[in-house]
Write a protein that binds this DNA or RNA. Structure first.
Lengths: 236, 236
DNA sequence: ATTGAATAAATCGTACATTGTTTAAAGAAG
DNA sequence: CTTCTTTAAACAATGTACGATTTATTCAAT
């Protein structure tokens, strides 16, 4: 019933019901995307009047969007000196994937103990689509992969943890979109997902948690290596 | 040399260099305090014009402060319907202390491997003050206890994790300020701190991490039990 | 009692005034 | 002539005021 196109990755239930003013909401999203997609350079100044002109609004919605982004950590503000893009650099990526390594195993452990037949079927269905796609369309892979993990975390009782995961996920997804998956990483992703499903079916919570720790660790390292390579290429 | 009064708990280095406008900054802090201290009821409406009048400013700084608070998760906003206080209830507390249980052991493990003689001396000094105070002044205990853990986490390379810890810590501190420590909890805190110092001295990272997990778990449960008791008292 | 229009209230966007910061040019000292 | 200081003007952030739009409330009529 759920079809291919359903996989525009959406946040888990009850998360991030964006509530800025209508103008502000879109502004927030636009600026935020520009930051995590890398269209705005690290530490670039965000001049309120410029942004307002560019988006055809007055300054007030821009100011509110910037405060919102500051609260979420994507922008730094110095009094009377305005806002700057918080750099999404290697440190940033390392910080958040390391937090993922700590949190996701706990979320996974709970999921394994609570998973229904439908949950497992859904995992297998998505995994089927992932293997069918087989990294041909990397964007699609990213969406499917996110959907896979969302199935596991979306019902978790700890909404803070799930929300944190989602926020970090969005950043990592945006960053990794700039790179290609290595063959080794592709193989690891597929086998780890399959193994994970097996653990879920068997109810092996601890094994699943351990596996997810490795999975997240591997994903994080993969992204970091790509970033390092690109930085080296730029420097050289 | 550092004296008693030094222990107004301050955030670790490089964290939360508050950067709203001067008016906005104080507004942000005031509203935020009102929320986590419980002076503003759960789900209470935050009317911009009221807040502006009450604090003697115009509406714009208030709006920006609210967006900032929304970004940090203390306020919910619905377009065209304004802001409400996000309830800091048992779920909220459980969520964030559980995240602490996952993150703090990792921070601790790193600290144990990196601790200098000065770090350990500082821990012992603070622990001395904690035992000297012996919960006579509960506010002072709270400050000292926070300082104790800040020594461990402030130098950690993962600024995101440290920042997260600090944000959660502030909330838990505010909530627990409304309750008294049980005798059992007092004993546990003192002995766990002493044991922790011993582990740090011996370089037992794993034991220290395990201990911190128990420590945070115990602290969280303690707060939750108090909240439950009070809710029961209110209902009955 | 329920619906619907009138009224009140609050949010949201725009425009503007004020204050602080940055830049660049002119002048003084070496 | 170069370098440093001073100063003024452009620039941008912050705060205020106000009108427009949306939502909530009241009260009358069926």
């Amino acid at each position: 019933m759920a079809e291919t196109s359903d996989f525009k990755a959406k946040p888990p239930e009850g998360i991030d019901a964006i509530g800025a003013s209508s103008e502000g909401a879109s502004l927030y999203q636009l600026i935020r995307e520009d930051i995590i997609e890398g269209r705005l350079a690290a530490n670039e100044r965000l001049v309120v009047t410029d942004l307002a002109r560019r988006h055809g609004t007055s300054t007030n919605p821009v100011r509110e969007a910037l405060q919102l982004l500051r609260g979420e950590g994507f922008v730094t503000l110095v009094p009377n000196r305005g806002a700057r893009v918080r750099p999404i650099d290697q440190d940033f990526v390392r910080d958040i994937y390391e937090i993922g390594v700590l949190i996701e195993p706990a979320l996974t452990r709970w999921f394994v103990n609570m998973a229904t037949v439908e949950d497992i079927a859904e995992l297998e269905r998505i995994q089927g689509l992932i293997e069918e796609n087989n990294f041909a369309d990397t964007f699609r892979h990213s969406e499917l992969d996110t959907a896979f993990h969302t199935v596991m975390y979306q019902k978790h009782y700890n909404r803070h943890a799930a929300e944190l995961w989602w926020k970090h996920r969005e950043v990592l997804r945006a960053v990794s979109r700039r790179f290609n998956f290595t063959l080794a990483r592709r193989a690891a992703i597929l086998s780890e997902h399959r193994e994970l499903i097996a653990h879920v079916k068997a109810g092996n919570a601890n094994e699943a948690a351990e596996l997810i720790a490795r999975h997240v660790e591997g994903s994080g390292r993969h992204i970091l290596e790509h970033m390092r390579a690109r930085n080296a290429a730029r420097a050289g």
